[in-house]
Simulated assay, not measured.
Amino acid sequence: MKITAIDKLTDKIIAGLRIKRGDDLSYLLTAPLEELQEGARRLQDHFCGNHIDFCTIINGRSGRCGENCKYCAQAACHHTGIEEYSFLPKEEILRNAKANQDAGANRFAIVTSGRALAGADFDKAIDTYKAMHDKLTIGLCASHGLLTREQFKRLRAAGVTSYHHNIETSRRFFPQICTSHTYQDRIDTIKIAQEEGFCVCSGGIIGMGETWEDRLDMAISLAELGIESIPINALMAIPGTGLANRPALPAEDILRTIAIFRFINPAANIRLAAGRKLLPQNGATAFRAGASASITGNMLTTSGTTIKEDMALLRTLGLTNQNTTCTASCGTH
Results as ranks from 00 to 15, higher is better:
K2S: 12
T10W: 07
K12P: 03
I13G: 00
I14N: 06
I14V: 14
I19E: 03
L25T: 10
T30I: 04
T30Q: 05
T30G: 02
E34W: 05
G39H: 00
A40K: 09
R41G: 04
D45Q: 13
N50W: 00
D53Y: 07
I57S: 00
G63W: 01
G63M: 01
C65L: 11
K70C: 10
C72W: 01
A76C: 12
F87Y: 15
E92D: 09
A97V: 02
D102G: 03
D102L: 09
A103Y: 01
R107Q: 13
V111Q: 01
T112C: 15
T112G: 15
S113Y: 04
F122R: 06
D123E: 15
A125K: 13
I126A: 11
Y129F: 15
K130G: 14
A131M: 12
H133W: 11
L136E: 09
I138Y: 04
G139L: 06
L140R: 10
H144I: 02
G145A: 10
L146K: 00
T148H: 10
E150C: 07
Q151K: 13
F152N: 03
G159A: 09
H164A: 12
H165M: 12
N166M: 11
I167N: 06
S170E: 03
R172D: 15
P175F: 02
I177P: 09
T179F: 02
R186G: 05
R186P: 14
I192S: 03
Q194L: 08
G197N: 12
I205W: 08
I206N: 02
R215Y: 02
R215S: 09
L216W: 02
L222W: 00
L225I: 13
G226I: 00
I227S: 01
I232K: 08
L235Q: 04
P239D: 13
T241F: 06
L243P: 06
A244R: 04
R256N: 02
A259N: 01
N265T: 11
I270K: 00
R271G: 02
A273M: 08
L279P: 02
P280F: 10
G283D: 12
G283W: 08
T285S: 14
F287Q: 12
A291Y: 00
A291H: 01
G297K: 03
E309C: 07
D310L: 08
L314R: 07
R315P: 03
T316E: 14
L319F: 11
C326M: 11
T327Q: 15
T327D: 04
